[in-house]
Design a protein around this nucleic acid. Structure first.
Length: 213
DNA sequence: CTGACGATTCACT
DNA sequence: GTGAATCGTCAGC
């Protein structure tokens, strides 16, 4: 691992380009995001971690999506715009959930980033979460992850090819670690679509949330 | 304007 | 396993 300064510059140089997000297969994007790095750098507080869990939300035809059946509201409007933007919303009045908007304008696809393995900026994460030490709960689950990285509702619309909040790749490869699919968490209201295997996890990673096979 | 409801987490039994 | 926290959003009136 290079020094932090070097590493942050390297990541900034390896941002995922618009063409990564500007694709129609949201499941493929969710899978491709496993192993990529999520970076937040608000007010010079550089933080990053490796993505180990994602979920695909397939827009108007997906009963689990906020955009299901063409629901276009103030909240979901960002998903109807161009790709490579952040969609952050409030869940249960408490938790912020961070999503990546994908596909072309008019096609409201998104990927929920559910868990990270922390890499850098752990002191910032501890301060934001109030946790005494860095254990597997620090960035396990979408609510914890957003809190640790300082992601707020106001970050909805942030350009993910910019410098504050972005995704990047490094040399890491899944290797012998398997990527596995499961049904999505917490979407039992979605009828048959609750059974779709739209969740992607890095097998045996301690930061992966939930109890589903 | 009002009421119902979460793409969750944590403490507690 | 159960229940509470907590508030922006949305459908319905």
């Amino acid at each position: 691992m290079p020094k932090l300064n070097e590493y942050s510059l390297e990541l900034a140089d390896q941002k995922l380009p618009l063409s990564f997000y500007d694709r129609s297969n949201v499941k493929q994007i969710a899978r491709d995001l496993i192993g990529k790095i999520l970076v937040s750098d608000f007010d010079g507080q550089f933080c990053c971690g490796r993505i180990v869990e994602t979920e695909a939300y397939a827009g108007e035809t997906d009963r689990a999506s906020h955009a299901w059946n063409g629901r276009r509201t103030n909240r979901t409007a960002i998903m109807y715009g161009p790709p490579a933007k952040a969609y952050v919303y409030l869940c249960y009045g408490i938790h912020r959930l961070f999503n990546v908007v994908t596909n072309k304008a008019g096609l409201p696809h998104a990927v929920l980033v559910r868990a990270l393995e922390p890499i850098a900026g752990i002191a910032h994460m501890l301060k934001r979460t109030g946790k005494p030490r860095a254990d597997y709960t620090l960035t396990r689950g979408p609510g914890n992850l957003a809190r640790a990285l300082g992601i707020e509702l106001a970050h909805t619309g942030t350009d993910l090819t910019g410098n504050e909040l972005f995704l990047a790749s490094d040399e890491w490869q899944p290797g012998r670690h398997k990527i596995r699919t499961t049904p999505r968490i917490g979407v039992d209201y979605a009828g048959a679509d609750a059974l779709l295997k739209y969740r992607y996890i890095l097998e045996n990673n301690p930061y992966v949330s939930g109890t589903k096979k």
